[in-house]
Design a protein around this nucleic acid. Structure first.
Lengths: 150, 150
DNA sequence: CGGGGTGGTCTACTTTTGAGACCATAGGCC
DNA sequence: GGCCTATGGTCTCAAAAGTAGACCACCCCG
């Protein structure tokens, strides 16, 4: 069995690969320390929150109020919207301002840091739209093979 | 109350902002069609899977076998690892090859498309490590204010 | 001949999420 | 004057998803 020499096609340059080393660093020592959790895991817990990125994108054009956000995203429950916004606020990506109108309205906006997070988000969305067709094709193929009669 | 004119600080250029329009496009018409789901939602469902990105990163250096992956990630259950790998395989980001050794071993590797996904992932991780300190500082501040005595 | 490593699956148990009721207030409509 | 709407949430309960760990068949190593 001549296994191909391990290694993937080269797409990333050395600097880019170095960035991903952060992930492996944590494996060595910082595993137990929550305080010193590697940024990868820490931030991926946010990004890995289904709604976080959606909220960031929804706020990318302009500040929005709570219910406008809910309408924009569509299928998010109030509960998760509240929770995600709180987390985002705590992390300093989103600001929350209450206007003492008759029924008080609350406006959420990206902070400077939140705005800066859009840069990688755009990269992600670009990649997603560029490969969406290929992915859907791959899924169809996979499902066909799985369902295929023996 | 002089509300600031709506709009966020300018960080993204016009092209980048155009990319994010994809999100709003879906709101108009494709809302009901699962088949035509906008790429944003579709791919964010993957990214929004807590483990997907971690697996991609773990595979970024070299192909890995199932149990090596589990050890690398650490706190993922077999169940979720299996499930996430299947999804990734179905989406065409990861390939699965079985070697008929004594106890059969299975090697997972990034496909070309999977490799290309590392580009935005690197962007994300870069951003994460660059802002990790600021985020933790923001959390501390937030928690202090919340816990503060009236 | 027992223990460990292979890649998973299956079955509980636990945590997270979603759907919807509820709240106080006020404005517009008729 | 009533009624419905909208505001931003919180609360509760049911459903969905995730975790932990047993189990499996197989073989090598000691």
């Amino acid at each position: 069995m001549t296994r191909e020499p391990k290694g993937n096609p080269v797409v990333l340059d050395a600097a880019a690969r170095a960035v991903l080393q952060i992930f492996w660093d944590k494996s060595d020592e910082a595993r137990a320390l929550d305080e010193m959790r590697c940024p990868v895991r820490d931030i991926l817990d946010r990004v890995g929150d289904k709604w976080t990125l959606l909220i960031l994108i929804a706020l990318s054009r302009a500040p929005q109020r709570f219910s406008a956000l809910q309408r924009a995203i569509g299928d998010i429950s109030k509960r998760m919207l509240t929770q995600s916004l709180r987390t985002l606020e705590r992390d300093g990506l989103v600001s929350r301002q209450v206007f003492p109108t008759k029924p008080p309205s609350v406006e959420y906006a990206l902070t400077a840091m939140g705005e800066s997070s859009l840069v990688p988000v755009v990269a992600l969305v670009s990649w997603a739209s560029a490969h969406h067709d290929a992915i859907r094709a791959s899924r169809r193929l996979y499902d066909t093979l799985e369902t295929a009669p023996l």
